[in-house]
């Protein structure tokens, strides 16, 4: 297994081998969540927050996933101050920063509920 430690502000997306992940905020916890929607493989990393920030909505079919259920498929990670460490297999890791929906890191309501 491989441990990678990075500054939290140095990336919001990564690939471990062929699998892609993105950095999702679940309350005070940063979660390295799978980018692939479990429904039809849509880009969950481009999803928007709904229901007071507790759910993320896939842009393909509007399926809404509670962030705690997304976390179940997330990489094992631990944040210490402004750094995050995560555990992967021995595959190649690539990290980068891309434009994600503006409300994704917020807990604000988008649906007015």
């Amino acid at each position: 297994m491989k441990i990678t430690t990075l500054p939290l502000d140095s990336f919001n997306s990564l690939a471990v081998g062929a699998r892609r992940y993105f950095l999702l905020q679940n309350g005070v916890k940063p979660v390295i969540a799978p980018s692939e929607c479990p429904h039809r493989g849509g880009p969950l990393n481009l999803g928007r927050r709904k229901a007071c920030g507790a759910k993320l909505v896939c842009p393909w079919h509007d399926n809404a996933y509670p962030t705690h259920s997304i976390e179940r498929g997330a990489l094992p990670a631990i944040r210490r101050c402004d750094q995050i460490s995560f555990v992967t297999g021995n595959e190649e890791i690539r990290v980068w920063t891309e434009l994600l929906p503006v409300n994704q890191q917020q807990s604000a309501c988008e649906d007015g509920q």
Binding site: M1, I3, N26, I32, G73, A74, P76, I78, S85
Partner: peptide
Amino acid sequence: SVSGNWDVDTFKAY
């Protein structure tokens, strides 16, 4: 904070 899908072996590796 701790997040994601940990098991005892990933913790040991960490």
